[in-house]
């Protein structure tokens, strides 16, 4: 019996976050969340999470996983890749109000500005934005309009 030809399997694509500590990774039991931080003194939330509160200067802010969904406040679309950007164009860009009490600047999963509207429900997605020089898929966050999915 002839030897079985060895089949070639691609290496499983590895995925890396665009920056550590911004959001939960695929497989996290909490689901897609942004990693914000809450101040122990003024209770204000901020993102990305840092040790010190940007509103009152208190140390010891605690991480909170938030932002699974929100409401769109403001939006536009970027049509020309800005310097340093490594994802596709056009892409949506906007401000989302989170029910936890935070306004987030975010990429939007839709660049169809004429279909976006104030108060529209949006959901957080953690998805590949580009492939880096090492061949890894680089994950970033965006908000996707619920109706458009």
């Amino acid at each position: 019996m002839p030897p079985i030809a060895r089949r070639w399997y691609p290496d499983p694509v590895s995925q890396v976050p665009i920056h550590p500590g911004l959001f939960t990774l695929p497989g996290d039991p909490r689901g897609p969340r942004l990693l914000a931080a809450r101040c122990p003194s003024c209770a204000g939330l901020h993102f990305p999470a840092g040790e010190t509160c940007p509103y009152c200067g208190t140390d010891g802010c605690r991480e909170e996983a938030i932002g699974a969904e929100g409401r769109l406040w403001l939006w536009t679309a970027v049509r020309t890749a800005p310097p340093g950007y490594r994802g596709p164009v056009p892409y949506g860009f906007g401000v989302v109000d989170l029910p936890e009490g935070l306004r987030i600047v975010s990429r939007l999963a839709s660049a169809e500005v004429e279909r976006l509207r104030e108060g529209q429900a949006v959901d957080l997605v953690i998805e590949p934005l580009f492939t880096n020089d090492a061949g890894d898929e680089v994950l970033s966050f965006a908000y996707a309009p619920r109706e458009a999915r």
Binding site: I18, H19, L22, T76, P82, P83, G84, L129, S140
Partner: peptide
């Protein structure tokens, strides 16, 4: 062209969160 600034950390630029005209547009939308 669009002004590159040392203001943003590199990941913000890679993620597309840095272009000035987009911020201008959000303020205009408001």
């Amino acid at each position: 062209g669009i002004i590159r600034s040392s203001f943003f950390p590199p990941w913000c630029e890679e993620a597309g969160l840095s272009p000035a005209p987009a911020y201008f547009a959000l303020r205009a939308r408001r």
